[in-house]
């Protein structure tokens, strides 16, 4: 089987879900890595270490910024020239879009968001969550190539093998641009939510700290936001100690405490960390839709009846504004920091 794995990168840096996809590819046989972009020598080197056997590299200034149409055309060309039975993508925003377009370009289908994969001879069956994970479906596609996107953190990341290398074959960049990229506004650094091992999330409860005295010139709404932001700063401190990321409920986003990029849930990000610490979050079904697949959930909530406790392995019924600072200190101590 000729397996191609698309290695999604931003400015030459791979998204971790790409390596998980390489790992899945290796379970099927040899893996050819597809890397598109500009200035990619270092990335190609890393890809071999993660297990890629051969690389098809489209390294061109015209690919410096991801543009769907140009990337899709490059991909179509590569598949036509090299042949391809299986095409795997990480389910990143770019990976999903390219997979969707590739299905059109190559007259086949696409199976999105696999969380498990079975190979029966050459035929792959994918398990994918639908209805926000309330139901799982098993699907296949009899057309070739079989195009599959793999949900982040659903498959193990292979251990890198330092020094492993392989052949790099240059391929041409496609044409057909329909957009120009004017620039980026990048989110402030830190661990990305979707890749995070540990997430500390805050909800509406972050604002409920009457002991804080906001500056006198703020009105009631501004004072609420100010209180919540002190609360989120406290979560950030704890997340930093744990090497994790900070998330939020929709109520916290809609109230203006934190930006939408931090929202976890049905209409926010889908996350599956090893540990998810929910602080002042009630556990509405739409919030659970985004974090249900976390390995371990911890809840801190003053309401013992909050539904979040039904999913939690550990819980504290109490005031998060008292527990969190003490918990941060305890983690520092426990981790020897």
């Amino acid at each position: 089987m000729n397996t191609l794995v698309y290695i999604d990168n931003f400015k030459g840096e791979a998204l971790p879900a790409s390596w998980e996809a390489v790992g899945v590819g290796k379970t099927l046989g040899e893996v050819t890595g597809l890397i598109f972009g500009s200035g990619l020598e270092a990335l190609a080197k890393t890809a071999f270490e993660y297990g890629v056997d051969e690389i098809l590299l489209a390294d061109d200034v015209s690919l410096a910024d991801y543009r769907a149409e140009v990337y899709a055309t490059t991909l179509k060309q590569v598949c036509a020239d090299q042949g391809c039975d299986v095409l795997l993508f990480p389910s990143t925003s770019r990976g999903r879009e390219l997979a969707a377009m590739a299905a059109i370009d190559l007259n086949t289908g696409v199976l999105v968001d696999a969380v498990a994969l079975e190979a029966n001879g050459d035929k792959l069956t994918v398990t994918r969550p639908i209805y926000s994970g309330k139901v799982l479906e098993k699907v296949t596609c009899s057309l070739k190539p079989q195009i599959i996107t793999l949900r982040g953190r659903a498959f193990p990341k292979p251990a890198p093998q330092p020094g492993k290398t392989g052949p790099v074959k240059k391929v041409a960049a496609g044409s057909g641009a329909l957009t120009t990229v004017d620039g980026y506004t990048t989110s402030e650094g830190g661990v990305s939510l979707t890749d995070a091992n540990i997430i500390v999330s805050g909800g509406r409860g972050m604002a409920e700290n009457p002991t804080l005295q906001p500056p006198a010139d703020l009105d009631a709404k501004q004072a609420e936001i100010w209180r919540a932001q002190q609360g989120f700063a406290m979560l950030k401190e704890m997340a930093d100690v744990l090497g994790g990321a900070v998330g939020a409920s929709r109520a916290a986003v809609d109230a203006g405490y934190v930006p939408y990029a931090m929202q976890v849930g049905q209409t926010g990000k889908l996350v599956s960390p090893n540990v998810y610490i929910a602080c002042g979050i009630s556990g509405a079904i739409q919030h659970l839709a985004g974090m249900r697949s976390s390995k371990m959930i911890v809840a801190i909530n003053k309401d013992a009846e909050a539904p979040i406790f039904k999913l939690a392995r550990y819980g504290v019924v109490g005031d998060l504004h008292q527990i969190i600072p003490a918990l941060t200190v305890a983690f520092k101590k426990g981790l020897g920091k």
Binding site: R67, S93, T179, D182, G183, Y184, T185, T186, S192, A261
Partner: peptide
């Protein structure tokens, strides 16, 4: 996008 916003 994952990295923030892309302006197109």
């Amino acid at each position: 996008i994952e990295e923030g916003r892309q302006i197109v």
